[in-house]
Simulated scan of single mutants.
Amino acid sequence: MERKWEKVFNILSVGEYPPFFTSNQKFKLRRYASKFTIKGGELFFGDKKAVKSRDEARALFNEFHVAPNGKHLGIFNSRRALCAKFYWFGMTRDIEKWVLECNECKTRPLTPAQIKIKRLAQNPPKIKRGVLNKKVEEAKKLAAYAAVDYHVKDNQIVGIGSGSTIVHVVKRLAERVKKENLNVFCVPTSFQTRLLIQDIGLKVIDLNRHLEIDVAIDGADEVDSELNLIKGGGGCLTQEKIVASCAKSFIVIADYRKDSSALGEQWKKGIPVEVIPMAYVPVSRAIQSQFGGSADLRMAVSKAGPVVTDNGNFLLDWRFDQEHNWSAVNTTIKMMPGVVDTGLFINLAERVYFGMEDGTVKIRDKNML
């Protein structure tokens, strides 16, 4: 932890890079350091003080975990108290671990959230060994079940994404609704998802009736180390982004193949861009002119001509050839006349569950970055 803070501090204060850093490493460090500021010789993440060491983090936890009345706070309240003032790498994971290890807290019954976290940490479900596609499906199922079990509660409105991983979300949600008699309404992000939800017997509701969604769960084509996503491989990116933006909490599920340190590392099919049909040529040329790479019209497989989205639009797949500032790229492309939206999901995901090849579930949380 100390070494990473030192790198960030040096680049902000004197513009100094570690020795032997490549241009790509320098770019990543600059991008990460841009989230921080130096105030009074101390490093801050927004208005939160950056904690320099694990020992200091543990000392702060010990201080904030016990309320003034002597009562020990649970995971949620401990995290809320600390996250309001401080930031360190992996703080969500650390707080969860330390609360579960607290001798005083061990004498009290675990909350449902603590039970689920403990089960994930101590007894991760194992997938069956077999062919690759079976492993992948099991990994998707692990991620989906973890997300539904941890985040969906009674009397909630739940956004349901699109794609193959979402099948497991809908199945698990239906199981819980039947077993626990949950009252849950689902907001679909595509025509296909709507049919899936209806066929399994869940309640469907639209955004024109309820503008606020409690939690949205969706898949991704790729997730980088900073929770930037590429979505839209299935062509539903615009409705997916609308639902995600209306949710109090946006949770992403994926298998281990989608986990990348940088966008484009695993996903080679490009970033989808939904465009009005008459604009696909001008937009394609504008993207290529400003950012390089190739932006090609996505052609259909089972019909003649291009893919048509649920909104009646076309899709461009932009295959980029270098790293970019994705927030700036997303804004620039969206401002091009004729663009409906992009498959870049920036600063939307709160947490990602990766179903891993070894049968465990890996969690990446925005508070752990």
Score class of each variant (00 low, 15 high):
N77I: 06
A328C: 01
M278L: 15
V275A: 11
S23N: 13
K39G: 02
V184S: 11
K303E: 05
T107F: 07
R79A: 13
K26H: 06
N155T: 13
K258A: 00
G232C: 02
N24T: 14
I115L: 11
G264R: 04
E212L: 13
F185T: 11
D365A: 05
A220Q: 09
K248L: 10
G359P: 13
K135S: 05
V170T: 12
S13E: 15
E226W: 11
E137N: 15
D365C: 09
F61M: 07
I276K: 09
P337K: 13
N10K: 14
E96H: 08
N77T: 13
G90I: 03
A295Y: 00
V170G: 08
V8N: 03
G292N: 00
K140S: 04
R3H: 06
N133F: 11
D317P: 11
K248S: 07
V329H: 00
H151L: 01
V361N: 01
K49C: 01
G74Y: 10
L43P: 04
K126P: 02
N123I: 04
Q122R: 14
F314L: 12
K231T: 08
I363N: 00
N133Q: 12
K231E: 07
H65F: 07
R319W: 04
E180H: 11
D224H: 09
N103Y: 06
G130T: 01
S284G: 08
P112S: 04
I200V: 15
